[in-house]
C-alpha cells in the first residue's frame, strides 16, 4: 500500500462538500418546482400536510438509518407497523367495556404499541445478531409473518377503532401546539435526537464502525451483537411510535396498512447519503430524503403535468438522480 500514501492525501477535502449538498440541492429544486407549478404549494395547509404525512416514514427511517449504518437492513417495518396498529386497535376496542372510553385507554394503547415495537425489534435483532442469520432473510421472514398476522387479526377486512375512541384520539394526529401538528413535532424531536445519537455518542460511532468493518469493531472491544441488536430494537420502538401517530389519522388498520413503508424508508435513507452497505450514516440526510419522497408525490398530485400512470417513473428517476448527484462527486477521488 505504499502508493496510497503518495497518490491520495489530497482527496478528502473538497469532495465532501458536494456530497453534503447533493440531497439538499435536490430538495430545493423540488420546492422551487412546486412553487412554480402551484401557488398553493407553500400554503400553511399544504406544508403541514406534507410534513405530517412524512412523519410516519420519517420516524421509521431515522431508526432505519441506524440499522443500515451498522450494516443491517429491515424489510419488516411496514408489516410490523400494520400488525402493531391492528393489535393496538384490538386492545383499545376490547378495553372500552372495562375502562370506558377515555384517555386511559389511549395511554394503554400507546403502551401496547411501544412494547410490541420493542419486542418485534428484539426478535429481528436477536435473530440477526445472536443467531447470525442475514438481516435480509430474517426481516423478509418477519415481513411476511406480520403481514399475515394483521390480515388474520382483521379477518381479511379492516380493523376500525371504535368511534367514541376515535374522537378522543384524533388530536394526536390532527392537533398540535402553536399551529404545528403533533406528528411534525414528534418527527422533529426524534430526528434531532437521532442526529445527536448518531454523531455524538459511542452508540452511533459503534454503529458506523460495525458497518464499516465488523471484525475491526470486534477487535476494538465493541460488543457487536449488542449494538446490532439495539439498532433493531430502536427501529422497532420507532415503528411503535410511528403507529401511535398513524392510528388516529384514519382510525383503522388493514392488510394494506404500511405497504411498502420499508422500501420508502430505505430509499429515504439512501437518498440522504447513508451507505447501503453500512459504515456511514447521517440522520439529517435521511430527513431530507423523506421530504424529497413526500414532495414528489405532493407535486404530482398538485398538477396535471404528467399522466398519473407515470408517477412511479417520476419518483424512480428523482430517487436515482438524487443519489447520482452525490455519488458522482465522491467517485472522483
Amino acid at each position: 500500500m505504499s502508493t496510497a500514501t503518495t497518490d491520495s492525501p489530497k482527496s478528502a477535502g473538497w469532495s465532501i462538500d458536494l456530497r453534503v449538498l447533493g440531497p439538499i440541492l435536490a430538495l430545493l429544486a423540488l420546492v422551487a418546482l412546486g412553487m412554480f407549478l402551484n401557488p398553493n404549494f407553500l400554503s400553511y395547509a399544504n406544508i403541514t400536510n406534507v410534513l405530517a404525512r412524512s412523519a410516519f416514514i420519517g420516524i421509521v427511517a431515522v431508526g432505519m438509518t441506524f440499522v443500515i449504518t451498522a450494516g443491517g437492513l429491515d424489510l419488516s417495518v411496514g408489516s410490523m407497523a400494520a400488525f402493531i396498529a391492528g393489535l393496538m386497535i384490538l386492545v383499545m376496542n376490547a378495553l372500552i367495556p372495562v375502562m370506558g372510553a377515555g384517555v386511559g385507554i389511549i395511554l394503554v394503547g400507546m403502551l401496547v404499541a411501544i412494547v410490541a415495537g420493542l419486542i418485534a425489534g428484539a426478535i429481528n435483532g436477536l435473530l440477526v445478531a445472536k443467531i447470525g442469520i442475514e438481516a435480509f432473510i430474517v426481516t423478509l421472514g418477519t415481513m411476511g409473518i406480520y403481514r399475515s398476522l394483521v390480515t388474520w387479526l382483521a379477518d381479511g377486512g379492516t380493523l376500525s377503532l371504535d368511534f367514541a375512541m376515535r374522537e378522543i384520539y384524533r388530536p394526536v394526529y390532527y392537533g398540535g401546539i402553536m399551529g404545528i401538528s403533533w406528528p411534525i413535532i414528534v418527527f422533529a424531536v426524534i430526528a434531532i435526537l437521532g442526529e445527536i445519537v448518531m454523531r455524538h455518542t459511542a452508540f452511533g460511532r459503534h454503529c458506523a464502525a460495525i458497518g464499516s468493518n465488523e471484525t475491526v469493531a470486534r477487535y476494538s472491544s465493541v460488543n457487536v451483537a449488542r449494538v446490532r441488536t439495539l439498532t433493531f430494537i430502536g427501529l422497532g420502538l420507532l415503528v411503535g411510535i410511528a403507529v401511535i401517530m398513524y392510528v388516529p389519522r384514519l382510525g383503522s388498520a388493514s392488510a394494506s396498512t404500511g405497504v411498502l413503508w420499508e422500501l420508502e424508508a430505505i430509499a429515504a435513507v439512501i437518498i440522504g447519503g447513508t451507505m447501503l452497505k453500512g459504515g456511514f450514516g447521517r440522520i439529517w440526510g435521511t430527513v431530507v430524503g423523506v421530504l424529497i419522497l413526500s414532495l414528489i408525490g405532493n407535486i404530482l398530485n398538485l398538477t396535471d403535468m404528467v399522466s398519473p400512470y407515470l408517477n412511479g417513473a417520476i419518483q424512480g428517476v428523482i430517487i436515482i438522480l438524487a443519489v447520482v448527484l452525490q455519488r458522482k462527486r465522491s467517485n472522483s477521488r
Binding site: 460511532r205 459503534h206 458506523a208 464502525a209 464499516s212 468493518n213 471484525t215 475491526v216 469493531a217 470486534r218 477487535y219 476494538s220 472491544s221 465493541v222 459504515g279 456511514f280
Partner: peptide
C-alpha cells in the same frame, strides 16, 4: 487492514474506538 483499522475512517475515529 482486516481487523485493526477502519480504512475509510479518519485517524480520530480509529484511535478512540475501543
Amino acid at each position: 487492514k482486516g481487523a485493526g483499522l477502519l480504512l475509510e475512517k479518519g485517524m480520530r475515529e480509529n484511535l478512540t474506538l475501543p
